[in-house]
Simulated assay, not measured.
Amino acid sequence: MPKTIPSLLLLMSVFLLQACAAQSHLIQDELETVTKEDLKYYLYYPEDYFSSESESFGLLLFLHGGGESGRAVEEIKETGPPKLLVEGKQFPFLILAPQNPHEKKWWNTQAVMQLLDSVVDHNRVDKKRIYLTGLSRGGSAAWELATQYPDTFAALAVVCGMAPLPYAHWIDKKMPIWVFHGEQDEVIDVEESDKMVEKLKEMGYDVRYTRYKGVGHNAWDRAYTTDSLYTWMAKQKRIN
């Protein structure tokens, strides 16, 4: 046994020398990065907006699903609130509907927030009445926005989106939430919403849950034609 000690000491010395050499190449630096994204979008103004020069309005940010990503911007109008607008429905608030330019990528949520901030700054928008909704891939992005920017939104509605369960506690506890999902969803399992809603309720959040029997991944067809969703949204206002 004593004969192995010099070898052990040699190995330790080599390790320490290598560690010191590695640290000598560890250089601290800093670089400012900027998020850039070409976002096409639609912006809807309620009729009353142009009859008053002083009144502020709420705004609904709508994020579409993967099927409308990276395609002609007109395809945004095939689902959700934009589809209802084409059919003639009127809303009491502005609606901002950007398009994800990448067919196979997630939403760039930082770019979406930059767009939202710009629209809010250049229009008569009540910052205490900004609402958020999204479906499928857009629903997942809506959850992400709610966790990353908890001081922004007055209400959240998510339709069949993947949910960031480990970060549920990051969401503003004062913001009411409404979740929709189809029980037969084969794209994003309904358990994503089940577990998220359960977790939020355990923590005392104000959560509504509509779980459609016999409905697959197209839960948005029923969710966004629920008139009470919009009356519920319009009643919400951030406390701080």
Rank of each mutant, 00 (worst) to 15 (best):
A219H: 10
T152E: 05
L61K: 05
L200I: 06
S7G: 13
E144T: 03
W107Q: 01
H217T: 01
M203Q: 12
F62A: 06
P82C: 00
R129T: 11
G70Y: 10
T4N: 11
L9N: 09
D29T: 00
K40R: 10
V73P: 02
H217W: 08
L8E: 03
K195P: 00
C20T: 05
I95Y: 00
L85G: 09
A155N: 01
D126F: 06
H217K: 12
A154T: 04
E186L: 10
E144D: 04
D194G: 03
V159A: 05
A223P: 03
L61V: 02
G216F: 07
V86N: 09
A223E: 08
Q99M: 08
Y49N: 11
D189L: 06
K83Y: 15
K83I: 14
E103W: 00
T210Q: 09
R208I: 11
I130M: 11
V119L: 14
A141L: 06
A22S: 06
Q28I: 05
L63V: 12
F180N: 14
E37Y: 07
K83F: 15
L132C: 07
L39I: 09
T225Y: 01
E37S: 12
E32F: 06
I177F: 11
G67Q: 06
G80Q: 07
A163R: 08
Y224A: 14
L229D: 03
F50S: 13
M233T: 11
K127S: 12
E87V: 05
A19D: 05
E183V: 15
D194E: 08
Q184N: 10
K195F: 03
Q99R: 04
T152M: 09
L43D: 07
V190Q: 07
L31T: 13
T33Q: 12
I27A: 02
V73G: 02
V190M: 07
S118T: 13
R124T: 14
G80S: 01
M233C: 05
M12H: 11
G67D: 05
A146V: 10
C20D: 15
K36F: 15
T79G: 01
I177E: 01
D194P: 01
G80R: 06
V34H: 13
G134E: 02
A146T: 12
K199E: 13
C20P: 02
R238I: 07
L60R: 04
T133N: 03
S118H: 14
F57H: 07
K173Y: 01
F93P: 04
P98R: 10
H102P: 13
D38I: 12
V197W: 04
G204R: 08
K235R: 04
L63C: 15
V207F: 15
S7L: 09
T4K: 10
G204Q: 07
K195C: 01
V14E: 02
L43T: 14
E186I: 03
Y42W: 03
T210F: 02
M162R: 13
I130Y: 11
K128M: 13
M196H: 09
Q23V: 13
L229I: 00
D29I: 00
Y212N: 01
L8K: 10
A155S: 05
S54N: 14
K104F: 04
K77V: 08
M1G: 04
L145H: 08
S13F: 13
T35S: 11
I76G: 04
E55Q: 13
V120F: 01
A168K: 02
Q110H: 05
K173E: 02
L115M: 06
